[in-house]
């Protein structure tokens, strides 16, 4: 079994923690996020080749009050930036975070466009979609509420890790 560290990043209140709550085996309470800024969960994903154990580092929301903790990225194999499709501002912040990550680590990044169960506040233009494809390895529409797209996203990430 191979083990990989995946970091979950994003602006505040985009639903990072909720996104994985149903999906992972967690032992640590949510209060770790507010105390030390990170909560760790794990999930074993079976790919065609082997089982991959994902150690998912749920990192505190990044905003103007809370800076980007580059240190938590150390040793990570991939990262997911979560955005909230009901708030376009979260996408702008997501891109800011992406830049900061790319400055310290050269690892594959994925975009989760969360709250897909709610109406979107923005629509992609052709150029925006092009930019997305260039910036991220892959992007997914997810819903923490219904669980749609979550498993698919982690399976894809696990698969990428074994290739």
């Amino acid at each position: 079994m191979i083990q990989k560290k995946i970091c979950l990043l994003g602006a505040s209140a985009v639903g990072k923690t909720s996104l994985i709550r149903q999906y992972v085996e967690g032992i640590f309470s949510k209060k770790y996020l507010t105390s030390i800024g990170v909560k760790i969960d794990k999930k074993q994903v079976k790919t065609d080749k082997q089982i991959v154990q994902l150690m998912i580092w749920d990192i505190e929301g990044i905003d103007r009050y809370c800076g980007f903790q580059a240190k938590y990225l150390r040793g990570a194999s991939a990262f997911i930036i979560v955005t909230d499709q009901t708030r376009s501002q979260s996408l702008v912040e997501g891109f800011d975070i992406l830049k900061m990550v790319q400055e310290v680590a050269d690892i594959p990044g994925f975009l989760a466009i969360n709250k897909s169960d709610l109406p979107a506040s923005w629509h992609w233009s052709e150029t925006e979609l092009e930019e997305l494809k260039q910036s991220f390895n892959q992007f997914f529409d997810t819903s923490a509420k219904t669980g749609d797209g979550v498993e698919n996203m982690f399976s894809h990430i696990a698969k990428v890790q074994t290739e």
Binding site: F28, I36, G37, I40, K42, Q53, K71, Y72, R74, G75
Partner: peptide, 19 residues
């Protein structure tokens, strides 16, 4: 205890302390 998660968390705490 789940050794994987404990060791990951300890790494996180260590980073936290360093920062």
């Amino acid at each position: 205890a789940d050794a994987d998660m404990v060791s990951s968390m300890l790494t996180a705490i260590n980073d936290f302390v360093t920062d």
